[in-house]
Design a protein around this nucleic acid. Sequence first.
DNA 1: ACGTTCGTTCACGCTCCGTGAACAAGGTTT
DNA 2: AAACCTTGTTCACGGAGCGTGAACGAACGT
Lengths: 260, 260
Amino acid sequence: MTETRPEDERPTRVAKTTMTSFEIVEALSERESAGVSELAREVGLAKGTVHKHLSTLHRLNYVVKDGDSYRLGLRFLGLGVGVRKRLPIYRRARGHLEHLAEATGEVANLMVPEHGYGAYVRTVSADKGYEPPFHEGERVHLHATAGGKAILAYLSADDRERVMETRGLPPLTENTITDRSALGTELQSIRDRRAAYDREEHTEGWRCVAAPITDPTDAAIGAVSICGSTERMTRRRTDADIPGIIGSAASSIENKLFSR
Amino acid sequence: MTETRPEDERPTRVAKTTMTSFEIVEALSERESAGVSELAREVGLAKGTVHKHLSTLHRLNYVVKDGDSYRLGLRFLGLGVGVRKRLPIYRRARGHLEHLAEATGEVANLMVPEHGYGAYVRTVSADKGYEPPFHEGERVHLHATAGGKAILAYLSADDRERVMETRGLPPLTENTITDRSALGTELQSIRDRRAAYDREEHTEGWRCVAAPITDPTDAAIGAVSICGSTERMTRRRTDADIPGIIGSAASSIENKLFSR
DNA sequence: ACGTTCGTTCACGCTCCGTGAACAAGGTTT
DNA sequence: AAACCTTGTTCACGGAGCGTGAACGAACGT
C-alpha cells in the first residue's frame, strides 16, 4: 500500500488551533449535543476559547446551534459521502455488495486500510431494518475483524509490523487474538486459504468471513466480508458456501480495477 | 424550527486558523487528490502554510497522504454517518424510505433544513445500480427542489424571508422559480395540497414530488420526496398515486416523533 | 546538463489565539 | 422574593504560534 503514515510525535510543525477545533468536533461527535461549558470541561480549555471555536464552526456550517446547545451538522456527511464516491474500489465494489447481501441474507461489507486501521466503506444489510454493530466510516483495529485480518495478512511485512506496533492488539472480546505469534500463525492460515474468519473476536454473538482484495503485486487494498449472528452463521456456510462467493466477488473487483 | 443562524459577518470573533484549515478541506473535497502547491494556489496562501495545515490534518487522520499527494480520508464519513445515526427524524423515517422506494420503483429521499439549505439525510434507490444527481449529505437551495419547497412552505414567515434573503433564488435550470412573488403563490398552492412538485427545476429530465414533515405547531422539520426521470414520472403518478403514499409516510413519521 | 517544479524546513515578525474576568439572563434553592 | 447557582457571550491583554519568503534537495522534462 502506498499510504504514507504520520510521523511519530513531532514537536510543533502543526497548526495547534486546528487541532483543538477538531478536538471539540470529536467531543461533539460523541454526544447528541452539548453546551459550551460542558465542552470546555471536556477538552480542558477556557469557556471563551471553546465558544470562539464553536462560533467558527457554526459560521462555516459544520455545527448546528439549537438555542444554547451545539451539535455536529450534516455537512460532515456531505464531505464523507463525497470522499467515498470518488474511491475507485468503492465504485467497482458497490454492485457486488448488494448482490452478496441478497445472496447470503446477511450483512456485506467493504473495508479498506487507512492510517493503520480498517475503515468500513460500505455496509449493506439484507434485512433493511437491522443495524449491524458498526457503521459506515467507522474505524476498527485490523486484528479483530475478518476484513481487517484479511488486509493484515496481505500487507508487506514491515507495514504489518508497523501497524501492530503503533495500533497494538487490544482485546475487544474474550476471543480477540492479542498475542503476536498467535496472530502470526493465524495470518499464515489466512494466506493459505485466501479467506479470513472472525469468530466473535470483535463483538460477541457476531461472526464474519472475509476475502482480501489485492493489487497486481498481491498487496491488500481492501477486503469484502459477510457478517451475521452466530446462530445463522453455521459451519457449513462459513466454511464452504461463503468463502466461494466472496472470493469470486473479490477477484471480479480486482479485475475491474486493474485490467487495461 | 429552533435552529439559530450564524450572525452576519462579524469582524473577528472567529478562529481564523480553523477557517483556513476548512478552506483547504473544502478545496480537497472538490478533487480526487491534490498536491501542496496546487492547493496553495487555490486558497491563496504560502506553500509552507498549506503544508503545515495538511500535516496537521494528516496527523489527525482526516487526510490521507499517498506519496506527494493528499486526499480526504474516510474519517469524515465516520463523523457524518454518526451525526445522521443520532438524528431522531432519520431513525423514524428509515424504514419508510425503504418501503417508498420499493413501492414506487423510484428514488426516495429524506431532507431536513440546515443553515438555510436543504440537506439530503438519506436517499434510497429502488434500482441499486442507479445514482441520482445528488448524494446523501449534499446541500441544495430550498427553492429548487420539491422537498425544499415543501420545507419552505411550512417555515414561519420570517424564517422563510430570511432564507430567501441570505441564500437567494439562483436559477439551476430554465424551469427554476427565481421570482419572489411567483415563489410565493407556488408555496401557497403547496400548503393547499400539502404536496410540493419539482418540474425539472433542479435538474433537467428529473421530477420530484414531496410531502412536508411538521412538528405539532405545523412547522417544517423535514420532507420526504420521490424522484424519477421525466418519462417515468407520468401525470397520473405524480398527481394521484405518489402524493397519497408520501403523505401517509410523512404523517406516520410525525406520529412516531411526537406522540407521547 | 540545465531549468523547472515539486514537497519540506526554518527563522522571524506580527497577527491572533487563549485566558480570566465581567456581564446579563435564566433556574433553582432558600 | 431574594440570594445563589450556572449558563452563554464579550472583551482587553500578553504571549504563543501562524503565515511568510527564502532556501534546500529531489524528481522530471527538455
